[in-house]
Nucleic acid binder design. Structure first.
Length: 486
RNA sequence: CGGGACGUAGCUCAGCUUGGUAGAGCGGUGCGUUUGGGACGCACAGGUCGCAGGUUCAAGUCCUGUCGUCCCGACCA
């Protein structure tokens, strides 16, 4: 093997394919996205990780605003008596609610839940705000932290405290509520695929996977490299369940008092975990350009008595920043090769190398993170003046290529199955998304889970008639993707 | 919450079986030489061995408890 083609050796993280868990944890820590904290199950989101979260927030927030939603903020603490009003909801969340029982030195007369989600407190406020059909719809989103007392935690995928957004809306009719639920589902799908570059299956959840208290739950599900599915966003049609529990009523145009129809929907920083696992490779993260805190990093190459590259990089970076690019200049006193590896690990889409040769020729050498060193097209040299024109195209191409790779993986790991034995084997082996005609019976789903640990991820309408359930032979009602999940 | 493994320098770990002066590599700091895929020399700094009890003349090492991390299940976003 010639020296030029020697594989890039990564010391900090283990190979991805050998042990996805070990790779994932190391990647999150070494890329400086998160640090473990003194609090069990809670991570610190470091500046680079927060940058990633901010980009998620910016893109989703713009989509929420564009569809008529407004941001607001509700209390972190929820009185127990309020929480108890919706039985199914309480039962669903009881095992993971953290409680405040003491304030200063005084024991509280009523304990306060730290929100695991905010349907309760927001529903209570909606009951006060809504009087007439003219007050509807209410379309509110909250960016917040929530706490769920988890037993096993992992960075982003499951932490006791996590950041998310939760949308809560109220409508005059069932149709409007359902439309909202589906509008958001599509918004999430669009964000996941076109911004995070994570292809997903979107659809309805089975009754067993439904949000506690919801009439219907919809979700987007992504496929991780180990063949497990990651629920990456949910949208719930709550019907009138919460309106009844929290007395959200209004006088309609026909002068009748009616309960409102509500929805809730959320995406958490868990989606970042999905993005990391889906796109990363043995060298570390590969962040899709639209989500990247740093789109391009300048690495000036200096020699003894020749540090002109630093000045050239700084000037070029300043110009790109003014043009709206997110760039950084790495002026640390390290070897260029060391910096290449570090920025590879941190997943910056484009590296801009400028050395003495480039300074003399007024050029810059671009290296793209989605290609390997052995790929002749990983690097190209362009005129320094043309960076602002070349970059958008390059970033866009990287975005597209990352999505295409992930899409190809999802498609090649989706199995349409007719045979029962094959279905069970694929589920048990964590082969990926296993697509069957299904009867939609809870007992059938429970059986599959007991045998294989796989559950339904999302359901979609059945095409054609007279299909039977691949698992039990009863008449099929839907098509279902089964997979083991995170 | 069950089963398993592990907590010793910033990181990865050795030392524990058989109690007796706290170790290595990497990393850090300073100076110098280097710099287009993880450079090198010299010098320096860095630890109440996760925490709390106990046994002992003496505990990183033995005992008990506790907290945390990872893996596999169960549960959950």
């Amino acid at each position: 093997m010639s020296e030029a083609l020697a594989p890039v050796v990564v010391k900090e993280i283990p190979p991805k394919a050998a042990d996805l868990s070990a790779w994932y944890t190391a990647a999150c820590l070494k890329a400086e996205l998160v640090s473990y904290s003194p609090v069990r199950g809670c991570v610190v989101l470091r500046p680079y990780g927060f940058g990633l979260w901010e980009n998620l927030r910016t893109h989703l927030d713009a989509r929420f605003k564009a569809t008529g939603h407004e941001n607001a903020y509700f209390p972190l603490l929820i009185p127990e008596s309020l929480l108890l009003k919706e039985a199914e909801h309480v039962e669903g969340f009881a095992p993971e609610v953290a409680w405040v029982t003491q304030g200063g030195s005084e024991t509280l007369s009523e304990r306060l839940a730290i929100r695991p989600t905010s349907e309760v407190i927001i529903g209570t406020m909606y009951a006060q705000w809504i009087e007439s059909y003219r007050d509807l719809p209410i379309l509110i989103n909250q960016w917040a932290n929530v706490v769920r007392w988890e037993k096993a935690t992992r960075p982003f995928l499951r932490t006791m405290e996590f950041l998310w957004q939760e949308g809560h809306t109220a409508h005059a009719t069932a149709e409007e509520g359902r439309d909202e639920t589906l509008r958001i589902l599509e918004l999430y799908r669009d964000f996941a695929e076109n911004v995070a570059a994570v292809p997903v299956y979107a659809g309805r959840k089975s009754a067993g996977e439904r949000f506690p208290g919801a009439v219907e739950t919809f979700a987007i599900e992504a496929l991780m490299p180990d063949g497990r599915a990651l629920q990456s966003g949910t949208s719930h049609d709550l019907g009138q369940n919460f309106a009844r529990a929290y007395d959200i009523t209004f006088v309609d145009a026909d002068q009748q008092i009616k309960h409102a129809y509500t929805t809730s929907w959320g995406v958490s920083w868990r989606m970042l975990g999905g993005l990391i696992m889906v796109h990363g490779d043995d060298r570390g993260l590969r962040i899709p350009p639209k989500m990247a805190p740093i789109e391009a990093v300048f690495v000036p190459i200096v020699r003894s008595g020749d540090d002109r590259a630093i000045e050239v990089c700084t000037t070029a970076a300043q110009r790109l920043r003014q043009a709206g690019f997110r760039v950084r200049v790495d002026t640390r006193e390290e070897q260029p090769g060391w910096k290449y590896s570090e920025w590879d690990l941190r997943g910056v889409p484009v590296r801009i190398e400028i050395g003495p040769r480039d300074v003399d020729a007024a050029t810059a050498t671009l290296a793209r993170r989605d290609r390997d060193k052995s790929d002749k097209e990983q690097r190209r040299t362009v005129a320094l003046d043309s960076l602002a024109e070349v970059l958008p195209e390059l970033l866009s191409d990287i975005q597209t290529s990352l999505y295409a790779q992930a899409k190809a993986f999802l498609e090649s790991h989706t199995y349409v199955v007719q045979d029962r034995a094959e279905f069970f084997k694929l589920c048990k082996d964590r082969a990926g998304m296993v697509d069957i005609a299904w009867c939609e019976r809870a007992e059938c789903e429970a059986l599959v889970k007991a045998e294989t640990s796989a559950t339904t991820r999302v359901l979609r309408p059945l095409e054609g008639a007279n299909a039977t359930c691949v698992v039990c032979g009863e008449p099929a009602k839907v098509r279902a993707y089964f997979a083991q999940s995170y």
